[in-house]
Write a protein that binds this DNA or RNA. Sequence first.
DNA 1: CGCCTCCTATTTGTATGACAAATTCCATGC
DNA 2: GCATGGAATTTGTCATACAAATAGGAGGCG
Lengths: 234, 234
Amino acid sequence: MVKLATVRNLHHQVIQELGRLIVSGELAIGQNLPREEVLAERMNVSRTALREAMKVLSAKGLIESRQKTGTRVREEMYWNQLDADVLAWRCESMPTDAFVEKLVEMRELIEPAAAAAAAKRRTPDQLAQIEAAYLAMEAAEDLDAWAIADLAFHEAVLRATNNELMSSLFSVIESALGTYFVLSARNSANFKNALPQHHKVYEAIRRRQPEVARQGMMKMVADSRSNLRRQRTR
Amino acid sequence: MVKLATVRNLHHQVIQELGRLIVSGELAIGQNLPREEVLAERMNVSRTALREAMKVLSAKGLIESRQKTGTRVREEMYWNQLDADVLAWRCESMPTDAFVEKLVEMRELIEPAAAAAAAKRRTPDQLAQIEAAYLAMEAAEDLDAWAIADLAFHEAVLRATNNELMSSLFSVIESALGTYFVLSARNSANFKNALPQHHKVYEAIRRRQPEVARQGMMKMVADSRSNLRRQRTR
DNA sequence: CGCCTCCTATTTGTATGACAAATTCCATGC
DNA sequence: GCATGGAATTTGTCATACAAATAGGAGGCG
């Protein structure tokens, strides 16, 4: 029996709790945290566990510790904004449209470029994976199957760029967006509307036409954007 | 007297050392590290310090610890590729052109989009900062002053997007590229060649013309790319 | 022989207490 | 007023002990 990610270790809980407090602003920037000993007692953990958590938060750029001075919350400009945890904490504490806009903007930035890069550099094997995802979308009977295949399609394209920086950025942004929306379009009836557009992108990547792929993908994400908006505003 | 970042704390050294070993591949993926007790002794630190380092590496996605099983190096796909440390370790261990290409690709992806976004959303204050940087470039007497002002220009544009995800991505990529090249063009003689192009971008942002700004920035980074290449190949 | 159950050995996770190191801040002397 | 030399405080490191999880084997049972 597989145990699904439940409550993890103690220091992990501390990371989450403090991280949330900081990103949400409940711990003001520049403010000093209590002494380790005090904070540990207040959170009902040992100083050891607390420190392990603090080191991680420090690595994420959220806090900074110095002897005698203590530990204080760093300015926002030092935070690792692209860290998955930091991003997740922001999503929790910033339910505003403004932040969603930023995420969407990033997505619209990545994907067309990725399609173009994929058209240039995809291997035959990677093309096959894209095709497989496309065929799965075509064959999808219900919305869930389609959504899964859709995500696979985008992931396959991203991997085909052979640029792990790009695909890593994609997965970070995508999972953050996922906290706001259940994947892709939910206006159920004819969910296969986007299929022709996917085919265009696939064809462009197959024929190694970077610009065509870019334009096609640009249109695709633009469409998906308006879907998101419709879903959200009602 | 300000002390510049020297050798930091012990656990920090451990982070660096293990991180390098992993990213460079000297510790093979999937391989188990020695037991904490053994590893600690081998590195001449206490188990406490070692563990603080391991938690950080774990947060960066490089390793994974489980009781009884031990700690092993995770697959590359789980690494936080956009983490500043991970990127820096890659730069050290991958002197190949291939990785530089990926970084440059990311840069060419970000900056035009940033210029467009800045044209849409810059505040008067942010525009003033861009202008100030431009004027500093114009006034630069030597190459160093120009390089500093140039970086300030790009940073100001990035900040003017009002999208901290984008500016964070920029700074990460830029600092990674900085490990390969001393900022910008080094073909000294007439380093102000790029000035008109900067002016075009500035004007487009001032006049709120996103597409013009995008095109202008696209050309600018393309030029700077060929500069980089020339500098590198000789 | 095959399968299930339980136990034990091993490894990370947490707790505690003590001391080292850095550095702010004050007192002291000149 | 200013240097200078301590404390006092806070994080950094160490050593040790025990808790918790769990892989892997021993043993029982059909």
